[in-house]
Design a protein around this nucleic acid. Structure first.
Length: 605
RNA sequence: GCUGCUGUAGCUCAGUGGUAGAGCACUUCCUUGGUAAGGAAGAGGCCAUGGGUUCAAUCCCCAUCAGCAGCUCCA
C-alpha cells in the first residue's frame, strides 16, 4: 500500500509556487488554512535568510498537513536549528508583518533573482506559463517569487511549529542537486496545533516497528539482510487467522488454491515480458547446470504454466487460481521501511482466466470480495481507475477494451471510480483501492488488473462452443496486496489492539495464587481444544505483575481465578484497556468469545 | 540510490582517547499476593563490521552493513 504520509507527505509538488494543500482542517481563520501555511513558509524562508546569509531558495508550498521550503545552505541543519529559526520567525512577524504583492515582467523577475544569486528562482521564473502574471511577495526586506495568495499580515493570531529536516532533490529529480527541506505546520490557533501534534504523537506510538518490538511481532536482521521480515509467533498467529479467513472467502467464491515454485527459468520471464519491463526490479540470474534461473517477482507466469498444462473448454471457464505467493523484488536500500516496504513479501494473489463475456461479471465478483474483506477490518475505501503508463505492452485498442470492462464491472457494483491517469501496470489497466485507516491516513492495497497481453505472450487458449480456439483473458488481483504491508498497516490501524479473531493471544489466564494453577490449566485445555490462543501465565510470581504484562501485550481478555472461581467454575473477566472485572461462569465466557471470534467482530465490547 | 542523522547488554538509553554503566527483561532464592510493576542476589557486552591515525581507540578518520527523517521509486 502506498503511504500517503501524514508527516509532510507531498500532497502536491508543483512546478509553480501554488499551494496545493487540501486544507482538510476546519477553516477557523480569516484566510484558508493553506494560505496561512504558505505565508508561514515565506516567513520561515525569511528567517533562514537572516540566520544563514547566502541561502538559496527552491520551492516552499503548503502541503496536506503543513508546508515545507527547500533550501540550499552551505551547512547541514540540525534539529536544534529549528528552534532558532522559529524564534527568528516570531521576531520577523512582529517587526515586518505586512505582506505586499508586486507584479513584474518576466525579464525583470529573472534579472532580480539573478542579481540576488537565486539560481533556482531564476529557473522557476521560466517555469511560469506564458500569459500568467509573475508576482513577488514581500515582507520586510525579504521577497519571493510567488503566485500567492497570501494572508495580509504576519502578526495575525496563528500558531506554527517546524517539524523536521530532510533532503529533497531540486524539482524532485534525482539527477539534480539535493536541497535541504524543512517541514513545518501552522494553524489558526494553538489548540488546533496541539491537536495536530498529539495526532503526530499518536502515529508515532502506533508505529508498527515500535509495536512490532513491544508486542514481539516481528524483526529484521542486519545479518540476514535488509527488507526481509521474520515473523514471530505472535504475528504468525495474526497472519494465520487472516489466511484462514481468506481461504474460506476464496473457496466460497470458486477460487482454487495452487502452489508454484519460487525460482523458474529465466526464459519464462523473458516470454512473460517481465525481464524487459520489470527487469530492474528483479534479482540477478543464477545458474543451475548451465541454465539461467531467476527468483520470481510476480506469480502470474507460474499460474499460466498450470493453465497451459492441458486444453481447456469454454465450459471450464472461469478458472480462478489463488496462491499466497511469495515474491522477491529489488528495492533500493533507502526505501526499506519496517514491514511496509520490503524485498521479500507474500501476495494474496489470484489469476482468473475467463472468456471476454465473463470479464465484467468476474471483475464485479472481485470488487465484491474486496468489499467484504476490507469491511471486516473496518476500512473505508476509494477506488481508482489506472490507465496506460508510458512503458507498456499491447496495442492501445486492447487497453481501451480492458478499461471499458473495468468501468462496466465497477458499474455493476455501483462503485464510483476516480481516475489515475497513466498509473496502470505495464501489461494492463487496473482498479486500485485506497483505504483510510483509523488515523485518517490513506494507503493503497487492493488491486484488480486486466491483462490481454500475457495470454497472447504465452499463447494460451480455450475451445469455444463454436469449435474455435480462442484467447482467454486474465485478471490479476490481490485483495490485501501483500501480507507484510497489509498486516503492518493493521498493526497501526488497531494500534496493537487486534480484534479477538486475529489477536496474537486471545485470552490470558492468571491464577491468583500458585495453587490455582491447576484450575486455570484446565481452562486452558478447554480453550485450546476450541482453537483459542491462550497465554497461560502460571509461572510463580505476583498476579499484579501478570495483569500488567497482559495489558501491555494488548490481550483482549484476562481471566483471573482464585478460590471462589475454582470452587464455582467461574472466571473473573477483565477486558483489554479496562480496570473493571466481571465474574461469570466459564461456559458463559467461552460462549461469548466464541461468538465474538466467529463473527469476526472488530470490537470486543 | 541520494542528503542528513544514528548503531554501547534481549529492550530503552547514560558514558569515556587509558578496553564500560542504569532501568526493564532474564536466572536463582525469598515472598502466597483479589485486579497495572513485592524483595534480594546473579548472569549477561569483540561498545555493528573491516581498515587507518595514535604509545594507547568503544570514543578521532575512511569504508562496509543495518536503521531513522525525507527525496526518488513501488505491493
Amino acid at each position: 500500500m502506498r503511504r500517503e504520509g501524514p508527516a509532510g507527505g507531498p500532497a502536491g509538488e508543483g512546478l509553480t509556487m501554488e499551494a496545493k494543500a487540501s486544507g482538510q482542517a476546519a477553516q477557523a481563520g480569516p484566510f484558508p488554512l493553506s494560505t496561512l501555511r504558505h505565508s508561514v513558509s515565506h516567513l520561515m524562508a525569511s528567517a533562514v535568510e537572516k540566520l544563514y546569509p547566502g541561502a538559496k531558495f527552491g520551492f516552499g508550498p503548503a502541503i496536506e498537513h503543513g508546508f515545507y521550503y527547500d533550501l540550499d545552505l552551505p551547512e547541514p541543519l540540525e534539529d536544534k536549528d529549528l528552534r532558532k529559526i522559529e524564534k527568528e520567525m516570531a521576531r520577523i512577524a512582529k517587526r515586518s508583518p505586512k505582506l505586499e504583492c508586486e507584479t513584474l515582467t518576466r525579464e525583470q523577475a529573472r534579472e532580480r533573482m539573478r542579481a540576488k544569486g537565486q539560481s533556482y528562482k531564476v529557473e522557476a521564473v521560466d517555469l511560469i506559463p506564458e500569459g500568467e502574471a509573475i508576482t513577488f511577495y514581500r515582507h520586510g526586506d525579504w521577497e519571493d517569487l510567488c503566485e500567492g495568495p497570501h494572508i495580509d499580515r504576519l502578526d495575525r493570531n496563528f500558531a506554527f511549529k517546524l517539524l523536521n529536516i530532510a533532503g529533497a532533490y531540486w524539482r524532485g529529480d534525482e539527477k539534480r542537486p539535493m536541497l535541504q527541506r524543512i517541514y513545518g505546520t501552522a494553524f489558526w490557533s494553538q489548540e488546533e496545533l496541539d491537536k495536530h501534534l498529539a495526532w503526530l504523537e499518536e502515529i508515532k506510538q502506533r508505529d508498527h516497528r515500535k509495536l512490532g518490538s513491544e508486542l514481539d511481532l516481528f524483526t529484521t536482521h542486519q545479518e540476514a539482510g535488509g527488507g526481509l521480515v521474520f515473523w514471530h509467533p505472535h504475528l504468525g498467529a495474526v497472519r494465520r487467522a487472516l489466511e484462514d479467513f481468506l481461504a474460506k472467502e476464496h473457496t466460497r467464491r470458486g477460487y482454487e488454491f495452487v502452489y508454484t515454485p519460487h525460482v523458474m527459468r529465466e526464459q519464462l520471464f523473458s516470454i512473460s515480458g517481465h525481464l524487459e519491463n520489470y527487469g530492474e526490479m528483479m534479482y540477478d540470474s543464477f545458474g543451475i547446470e548451465e541454465v539461467k534461473y531467476r527468483i520470481k517477482p510476480m506469480n502470474c507466469p507460474g499460474h499460466v504454466m498450470i493453465y497451459k498444462s492441458r486444453a481447456h473448454s469454454y465450459r471450464d471457464l472461469p478458472i480462478r487460481f489463488a496462491e499466497l505467493g511469495t515474491v522477491y523484488r529489488f528495492e533500493r536500500s533507502g526505501v526499506l521501511h519496517g514491514m511496509m516496504r520490503v524485498r521479500g513479501f507474500t501476495q494474496d494473489d489470484a489469476h482468473i482466466f475467463c472468456t471476454p463475456d465473463q470479464l465484467e461479471s468476474e471483475i464485479a465478483g472481485v470488487l465484491e470480495l474486496v468489499h467484504v474483506v476490507l469491511e471486516t477490518f473496518g476500512y473505508s475505501y476509494t477506488a481508482y481507475l489506472a490507465t496506460r503508463p508510458e512503458k507498456a505492452i499491447g496495442e492501445p485498442e486492447i487497453w481501451e477494451r480492458a478499461i471499458a470492462a473495468l468501468k462496466r464491472g465497477a458499474a455493476l457494483r455501483g462503485l464510483p471510480l476516480e481516475l489515475d491517469e497513466g498509473g496502470g501496470a505495464f501489461y494492463g489497466p487496473k482498479i486500485d483501492f485506497k483505504i483510510k485507516d483509523s488515523l485518517g491516513r490513506e494507503w493503497q492495497m487492493s488491486t484488480v488488473q486486466c491483462d490481454f497481453n500475457l495470454p497472447e505472450r504465452f499463447d494460451i487458449h480455450f475451445m469455444d462452443s463454436d469449435g474455435r480456439q480462442k484467447r482467454p483473458i486474465m485478471i490479476h488481483r490481490a485483495i490485501l496486496g501483500s501480507m507484510e504491508r497489509f498486516i503492518g498497516g493493521l498493526i497501526e490501524h488497531f494500534g496493537g489492539k487486534f480484534p479477538l479473531w486475529c489477536a496474537p493471544k486471545q485470552v490470558a489466564l492468571i491464577p491468583i495464587r500458585e495453587e490455582h494453577a491447576p484450575y486455570v490449566r484446565k481452562l486452558e485445555a478447554l480453550l485450546r481444544e476450541d482453537l483459542f490462543r491462550v497465554a497461560l501465565m502460571d509461572s510463580p510470581g505476583h498476579m499484579n505483575n501478570k495483569i500488567k504484562d497482559a495489558q501491555q501485550l494488548q490481550i483482549p481478555f484476562m481471566l483471573i481465578a482464585g478460590d471462589r472461581e475454582a470452587a464455582e467454575n467461574t472466571v473473573a473477566v477483565r477486558k483489554r484497556g479496562t480496570r473493571e472485572q466481571v465474574v461469570m461462569p466459564f461456559d458463559e465466557f467461552h460462549a461469548l468469545i466464541r461468538k465474538l471470534r466467529d463473527s469476526r467482530a472488530i470490537s470486543i465490547d
